[in-house]
Design a binder for these strands. Structure first.
Lengths: 209, 209
DNA sequence: GGTGCTCAGTGATAAAGTCACATTCAACCG
DNA sequence: CGGTTGAATGTGACTTTATCACTGAGCACC
């Protein structure tokens, strides 16, 4: 049996079969762009496995990462686009090979109509996304960049060096590449990280805090 | 007949009567605090008239305005809190005398179950809120403060001087009071505004752009 | 071994945030 | 009416971020 999305697991058998029948299974490779700003929305993407990064492009050409979607997440942004019939404001990049279901509008509407459990999950997902964005607003508005950078490195260092360029880190934090370069250089001078081209290694002593 | 919320207007008569019966009508005065960070959620507030400001408090004690609710809006944040059963992360301040309905969880669930139109509106409302926050993120991360300040003044000057302190403006923009004071002083020196205690008047020549 | 990338480092300068304190205004009291 | 008080505003000094304009380093591919 094929891996499935948690959101469908809690549906009664009949509805679930119907949902699976109408959903289109899609496979995405790292680097693929799922949608860009302005694109129309063709259904609700539900991530089964993998990782997709959602980011925005500012007028100045700079970008900022808004959030990520992982297994059993769904693309909350798409629901808004579906309902309002307007295009996306952000863009989604596949980071790891990803499997997803694309649920067409009509099937989504039917599920919303017929399953309280489904409705509950959709609303909860929306709530989490709002929370994510509110926390992001707080960080950007009031957080110090050196702290945010260190925290990013801690969160993404699973004992291994992060394979990422300064430019990409800048987009993660919504700042400029030069700023990241300078901060990292400072960290290095203080023995907090080890740097190489396309690689940032948080030193052991820094991982606990 | 009493003024009603647009969201209920589009319900079939039976459902609507039921909704109105279960909803609690509340009257709020300017200055009231509807909820604070950490408070539990007791239902979905639906604004009929007036204006409520939703803002967040950063660790540093600074705040930032996330968005406003006006007639026929609803408090999207509350839905997430209801569904996840956790407290608010933000706080809501009444700006103008406001009339609202408080729809209890159960009544909300019933409406969601029984009206496609209602579901559609709720999801659209969520979509708008996500959009608001995304635009805010972009502004904070990439916008220039002098531009944001001028735009705020333009947006809130209906030909009349804005009655607001520098401190309050700082919260609107998510910055520090001193920064606002300095920018405004600059604007004044360049003849773009006229300042008085608790009052900022955008001069005619500036209102078009 | 050169050539052409992308990636990283850095100086100079401007914008924004922080801290500490001075000044001004308006309301209220006696 | 003058004096007192508290909020609102002004400002200097300094730090942190952002921007601009380059320079230098590492790596792949001929």
């Amino acid at each position: 049996m094929t891996a499935q999305h948690a959101l469908l697991e809690c549906l009664p058998a009949g509805l679930r079969a119907e949902a699976e029948q109408h959903a289109q299974r899609i496979h995405l490779s790292a680097g693929d762009v799922v949608f860009r700003a302005g694109d129309g929305c063709r259904g609700l993407p539900m991530v089964i496995s993998g990782s997709v990064r959602v980011q925005m492009l500012g007028a100045s050409g700079h970008g900022i990462v808004l959030y990520r979607m992982g297994p059993d997440d769904l693309c909350t942004l798409s629901i808004g686009c579906l309902m309002a019939g307007r295009g996306y404001r952000a863009e989604a990049h596949v980071e790891e090979p990803t499997e997803a279901l694309l649920m067409p509008r009509q099937a989504f509407d039917r599920l919303m109509a017929q399953s309280a459990e489904f409705r509950q999950q959709i609303m909860a997902s929306y709530g989490r996304r709002l929370d994510d964005l509110m926390l992001l607003v707080e960080e950007i508005a009031f957080g110090r960049l050196d702290q945010r950078l260190l925290e990013w490195l801690k969160a993404h260092a699973n004992g291994r060096p992060a394979l990422i360029t300064h430019q990409e880190l800048a987009v993660e934090l919504g700042t400029a590449r030069e700023v990241v370069s300078r901060l990292l250089k400072d960290f290095e001078r203080h023995g907090r990280v080890r740097l190489a081209r396309g690689r940032v290694e948080l030193l052991q002593s820094q991982e606990v805090d």
